[in-house]
Design a protein around this nucleic acid. Structure first.
Length: 526
DNA sequence: AAGGGCACCAACCGCAGCAAT
DNA sequence: GATTGCTGCGGTTGGTGCCCT
């Protein structure tokens, strides 16, 4: 290890990449010449730092691409900006996070999810990169240890805050915290804040989620009404947060749910919510209803697919991390004719994101709050089996055994679907159980006449009642991703999709891969 | 002592938003 | 309206040192 004086702080000890920091940086010395200077990559040298500092002192921040031009520094603007933001800025607080700051990070992450920049803005002197690194490191450590990500006190604090907010005018709550999160997203879907979600004691009570105004999806003013905040995310690849949120929530905050639910068997929530190899698996004697979702699609290898389709189809966001062998095995044994994880991931991510607005609730970018509510919901819905698709095996049975007043059960049961490799049911992946929401247009909501209808409108609608409509609605040239739904079940006939449409969509999805590997084959068959 | 795994850190990459043209 | 450039963000990768076996 070596240390290097960097900028204004002599104390900062840089680990790693130290050797290069000792290099004497000379502009041009490591870039080779005049004219088109090849941009340098890799660690910055002290000399480069000095040049950048000088540039900023002279010209101020911004216009980073001009740095190279004016200073001769062989770095791209992006690199300069990053270097400045993460290391050279005078207002940077160097050194490790204090305990207070760590707690703040936890809290912020619980609230915001992987919004590093936003978290950084709440932690003066620290950068998003720093926080991100800290978090990732922490997560790895916790996962390995099978420990909850969020300490109990954080869960409690968040949840308590959540409870307090219950007594506040639901229409005014939101502004109090997520200042910029309460806006409508670009799709016109209101952000919804968990603080306003009510936990109901009475399992038979219809969750408030179903009590929204009919035109909720057109109302931004009612965004605080009930849903978790949906952060319009430009990223579609979030991975860890959810699981961790879920996990920690279930392992830490669960006792808190006891005040709201009857799920009080003491050990019910005690299990670390990690799956092999990260942690123990529930045995049949320790049934966990909903919250644990053993073998759930939602929990992949210690991570949750942030696209957990509780309430809507969405573009899949698979964890980029690995999957457990268990899950691999389950797919295989399920005999699912599914593509490899990698290819699925690729394919899933490649289509346009227009489908995203269909989300009523997204776990994307979700933090602890979301996790808590989802957990709560899932527990509740172990009665309704709303989440059955996420529950397999004994968990499923356990959930089923508690079925009460379950208007949704058959929807899932009839489907009898198997786990998909995507961390969710194939049906939920795309369209079969797409909730009638913004995707289907307000008309779906408008047609709801009474409470039950509202309920129905916000609930998964079985294939039988929707397939026909879908076949009329889905433009596979625009939504090749919808193919997954079809292909998954081999039910394209139900959708009236033609072979050529199918091929076109597949081509759109797979590109050359399809043409190379399937297209010819397909041609040959025809 | 050697090797592997892990922690930490820095930096890169790709994407998206936005403004200027 | 389309294009381009700049900027910011989040995910990921790679390097180095430490620790443990």
């Amino acid at each position: 290890m070596s240390s290097v004086t960097n900028g204004d702080d002599d104390q900062k000890i840089y680990r790693g990449r130290s050797s290069s920091l000792h290099e004497e940086a000379h502009v041009g010395g490591n870039t080779g010449g005049e004219g088109e200077v090849p941009l340098k990559k890799g660690p910055w040298t002290a000399g480069e730092d000095a040049i950048l500092l000088e540039y900023v002192n002279k010209h101020g921040q911004g216009n980073w691409n001009a740095v190279q031009k004016y200073s001769g520094l062989a770095r791209c603007g992006k690199s300069c900006r990053l270097r400045w933001a993460n290391h050279l800025r005078p207002d940077l607080k160097k050194g490790a996070f204090t305990q207070e700051e760590e707690n703040r990070i936890l809290e912020l992450h619980a609230k915001l999810g992987n919004k590093w920049a936003r978290m950084a803005s709440e932690l003066p002197g620290h950068t998003d990169n720093e926080i991100k690194n800290y978090w990732n490191t922490r997560i790895k450590r916790m996962q390995r240890a099978g420990l909850p990500i969020y300490p109990p006190e954080i869960c409690e604090r968040i949840l308590n805050g959540n409870q307090e907010s219950k007594n506040i005018d639901p229409l005014n709550i939101e502004a109090s915290q997520h200042d910029n999160l309460s806006q409508m997203d670009k799709f016109g879907i209101p952000d919804m804040d968990l603080k306003t979600v009510k936990f109901h004691h009475d399992p038979s009570q219809v969750p408030r989620i179903f009590e929204m105004p009919e035109n909720l999806f057109e109302q931004s003013s009612d965004s605080s009404y009930l849903f978790p905040t949906i952060y319009p995310s430009k990223r579609r690849r979030e991975s860890e947060t959810l699981y961790n949120s879920f996990t920690s929530c279930t392992s830490n905050a669960l006792p808190l749910f006891d005040q709201y639910d009857n799920y009080t068997s003491e050990k019910t929530y005690d299990h670390p919510r990690f799956y092999p190899p990260f942690g123990p698996v529930l045995n049949s004697s320790n049934q966990f209803h909903g919250g644990n979702i053993n073998g759930s699609h939602a929990m992949l290898n210690g991570n949750v697919s942030s696209s957990v389709p509780f309430f809507g189809a969405r573009k899949l966001e698979l964890p980029s991390l690995q999957y457990t062998e268990t899950q691999h095995g389950s797919w295989i044994t399920n005999g699912s004719p599914l593509p490899s994880l990698e290819s699925v991931d690729t394919m899933i991510q490649s289509p346009p994101v227009e489908s995203i607005p269909s989300d009523l609730i997204s776990l994307q970018s979700s933090g602890l709050l979301e996790a808590i509510v989802y957990n709560q919901k899932s527990m509740k819905n172990s009665n309704t089996d709303l989440f059955l698709p996420m529950i397999t095996g004994t968990s499923n049975e356990a959930a089923g055994s508690s079925t009460l007043n379950n208007p949704y059960k058959t929807e899932w049961d009839e489907q009898g679907e198997l786990n998909s490799p995507l961390g969710q049911s194939a049906a939920s992946v795309m369209t079969d159980y797409t909730p009638i929401s913004s995707v289907d247009g307000p008309q779906s909501i408008e047609t709801t006449q009474d409470h039950d209808d509202k309920l129905q409108a916000l609930t998964w609608v079985p294939n039988s009642s929707r397939k026909k409509r879908k076949s009329e609605q889905i433009d596979f040239s625009q939504r090749p991703d919808a193919l997954f739904d079809l292909a998954w079940f081999g039910n394209n006939n139900d959708y009236g999709i033609s072979q050529s449409d199918l091929k076109d969509a597949l081509s759109a999805l797979l590109g050359e891969d399809y043409n190379d590997n399937f297209g010819e084959h397909s041609k040959g068959k025809q």
